[in-house]
Design a protein around this nucleic acid. Sequence first.
DNA 1: TATGAATGAGTGTTCATTCAT
DNA 2: AATGAATGAACACTCATTCAT
Lengths: 193, 193, 193, 193
Amino acid sequence: MRTKDETKETKILDATAAIILKDGAAGVSTVKVAKRVGISQSNVYLYFKNKDALLLSVYHREMARIQATGDLQAAADESLAIEVRLKAYISAIYHYAMAHPDSLTLIQQIKFLFGQYDSNPFLHGETTQNLITDLYAQAQQKGVLKNAPISVLMSMVFSVIHTHSMNVQRQIYAADQYSFEEIFAVIWQGIHA
Amino acid sequence: MRTKDETKETKILDATAAIILKDGAAGVSTVKVAKRVGISQSNVYLYFKNKDALLLSVYHREMARIQATGDLQAAADESLAIEVRLKAYISAIYHYAMAHPDSLTLIQQIKFLFGQYDSNPFLHGETTQNLITDLYAQAQQKGVLKNAPISVLMSMVFSVIHTHSMNVQRQIYAADQYSFEEIFAVIWQGIHA
Amino acid sequence: MRTKDETKETKILDATAAIILKDGAAGVSTVKVAKRVGISQSNVYLYFKNKDALLLSVYHREMARIQATGDLQAAADESLAIEVRLKAYISAIYHYAMAHPDSLTLIQQIKFLFGQYDSNPFLHGETTQNLITDLYAQAQQKGVLKNAPISVLMSMVFSVIHTHSMNVQRQIYAADQYSFEEIFAVIWQGIHA
Amino acid sequence: MRTKDETKETKILDATAAIILKDGAAGVSTVKVAKRVGISQSNVYLYFKNKDALLLSVYHREMARIQATGDLQAAADESLAIEVRLKAYISAIYHYAMAHPDSLTLIQQIKFLFGQYDSNPFLHGETTQNLITDLYAQAQQKGVLKNAPISVLMSMVFSVIHTHSMNVQRQIYAADQYSFEEIFAVIWQGIHA
DNA sequence: TATGAATGAGTGTTCATTCAT
DNA sequence: AATGAATGAACACTCATTCAT
């Protein structure tokens, strides 16, 4: 494998992510990225077909990172009760977001730049995404979730967790001012049938 | 009479809004706006100091439109019980969003372009906004709302309503597939103590 | 006569002069001028054919002001000895410059903007100018001035006086740190045969 | 012909200088420069950070050229008498100006564009400039120069030489109509104590 | 006399992308 | 794999000037 290349590719993705967090997704330019990495502008095109591919790569990397969360595996464990799996999923996203609040911001920013065609930021992870959607669908079928559009429930979960994690990151209030249970209550009672 | 001027100003705002909905807020350019209105590019600067002022104007116009909703007045009626007012507020936003789904999209897009510093898209309406925040705050004090950050509750409300209204607009499902009560249940049980 | 108009015209000229001193002659624009006067941009064209005419007007006004100096009349008095007249002229310019250092700056800035075709900033006053040039020419013929190009001598006089007056205005040194005689000595011994 | 050897940067500087001489420093635009060189406008920004940097580069190049004059070295030779050094300096500038009259014009134009804050166009060469100012200062201390502001004396020298060289270039009179000694006399008797 | 509206040409600057080396 | 050079298109914004009112 191309160790060197992957390092460089990672650096480019990191730089891009940093710029998104600083200037917004619309503020990303290959010039800025290259300058930040310390490479020539054209070098970026060796690793990414074009700017869109670069942004999409950042997006997919964040999605993959969320999925890689160990906690998330429990949600996929079909031997568990659906309610348990759902709670595990929400808990996993919550704790991931608290540890990496920028992650959700990146996802949201890129989604918004590419048009608001799909309002649910958790979508699009292909394989994993279907699992999650399936989880919601099954839970709804079994009467665990309210009879509301799944995309509405999903974006609600995302919205609550993201807003809370950003508040903490921006020190609008201390992390321990609100317990997980308190935040979770909002989500659960909102989606629970 | 400045009728003529106001028409032009309105046309420019309309064109800008249309572009935002089509290409996102980052996709707005004075050239596009001017072309759409059928005027010269420099003419835009006769009505708006600069591009930011133009976008902000679109933003404030949408905010004002929401506030102008008759239903919203009930939410401000201090003679009513706090719970009634809160429900009136949510209902008002809901019905406004269903009638004008683009409105929330515009607000969200512009907010995101100007930096994600304030994650609550309903904020910043000055007078009205304080009323709404006050409403939430009072409701929380009186134990009507859960003990969760107000900004989290507010953005949750926005998120649910916006996602649902977009789904309907994009014909992901029919408007009558989910009743107001069903959507409202998600919101209310989410925020209600 | 049109009293009101002349007031306005004066205001426009004043505003233009102020802008030149602040941003340089190249920094003048009808927008800036109009804004400063508090009139509409197109109004400027009621008083001046175009921007060049405006700048030229400022130029000529300053030239006229210098000529209007009472002291300068002595220089024109043909009954006096040529050396006396020449000294009177230099003294007049010197004292005018000390009282109105911006005047020479305006003249210089406008001259430079319109191309450096004529390096002598004192030229171009038509009637008066010929008098001054004649004065130099006569003085040279009578052996009072060195055998050097008159334009060189003239621009030397301007340069010394202008530099000194600017230094004082910018408080690089106090006005009384150098007497008129000291500055005059530089000029006189430079041009005197 | 250095055409082939000339780097792009040099070509751009040359084009800029030519435009300054033709239209004045305020008349320089990146479009004009690019067109003259035969490159695309954006290419200019590959070699110069912005327009100011471009103009400053032209300025510094001319300053460096003057300093590179062999004759100027004598002025820096501290083993020589101060009066000798001063005369060497004036002579060097004079002969340089006669050979390259545009050089002083460029310097003057750019100085004027950047604001008239420093009225002495010979200033700002950093290292060399201090040497020259020191030379004047020492000469004044030793009673060689009149008791007048050094900046006044310096701009006087510049003015005389520049005006004369321009006159010759514009064929207002022939180069041999006035000898170096005649021009020098104006300068020297003007500044000499 | 005065203005507001309008515009086309212009400004400096940034950008995504390509290509030869 | 990496770069420097190059470019055309786009950008926000300013300007001098005209014209109808």
